[in-house]
Amino acid sequence: MSLAVVADAAGRLATTTPAAVDLSGVHRTFGAIRAVDGIDLHLELGEIAALLGPNGAGKTTTIDMILGLSQPDQGTVAVLGMAPSAAISRGLVAAVMQTGGLLKDLTVRETTRLTASVFANARPVDEVLERAGIVDIGNRLVRACSGGEQQRLRFALALLPDPALMVLDEPTAGMDVEGRRDFWTAIRRDAGQGRTVLFATHYLEEADAYADRIILLRQGRIVADGTAAEVRNLSSGRSVRATLPGADQAALSALPGVRSVEIRGDRVLIQSLDSDAVARYLLSSTPAHDVEIVVHNLEEAFLALTGDGSPQ
């Protein structure tokens, strides 16, 4: 059953739709390597989430388990309320893998027709080619397509079953800047229709620009999970700078979220997880002027959370 019918306190019936992805206590080891070391992940329908992490963080292993290509040693994986293989056979989940997976001696259109033929219901071939932006190269052999064109073909194939969940594993690896932008434009346009999208990437800017939610992986574990802004704040917050003669270090340090206060002559430098509170205090309760708030970029957060020096 993918629909659970529950009665609330007043006895009314309510229907709940299943989670797009539900990983619970998932472990997967390869020999001595703990590729995935206890992941709990719950994705709601309609979310666009990025799995971000350096190489070896467990992104591909996690995705393979969501797609049913491999099994967890421990824990459970459910996709849309069912086993991954059941969701795949119904065309509810589609994936765009990093490389390979195409026959070089077929044309773009033949590859799409061939793939469409194995689904019980598939969108029309022309429609998916159009949406992936490759309708004009339909008669080109796959071997003659650029890396970006091949990737858009994989995307077109993934659109065929009209999946509720689209999974992309490092979809723009090896593409040039323009290819990446075109690719994400197509994905973004498509996701506007309510499809759940989960993509793995090690490009920070991609996660920042295209995901509503970022799940940061490190050594097989989730080390941060939230919006891009939340993930940034988690590691290092923001710094607030101001000109404030005779600053009271104790008062500033007592503000909520403040991690450090540095005073250099008339300038103060405050590191805080809650820069708004610091700024509000400075502007309303002190004669501070020239207040600047510097946002740490995602890259700094990424390095702080995934680097070897960070606490586990």
Binding site: T15, M82, L92, S117, F119, A120, A164, Q193, G194, T196
Partner: peptide, 22 residues
């Protein structure tokens, strides 16, 4: 996608996907 009320309603292909076009 995603607002479909029942994912169970989706069918599997006949013959495991074996077909003439393929």
């Amino acid at each position: 996608p995603g607002t479909q009320r029942s994912f169970d309603a989706r069918r599997r292909p006949a013959l495991g996907g074996l077909n003439r076009t393929f």
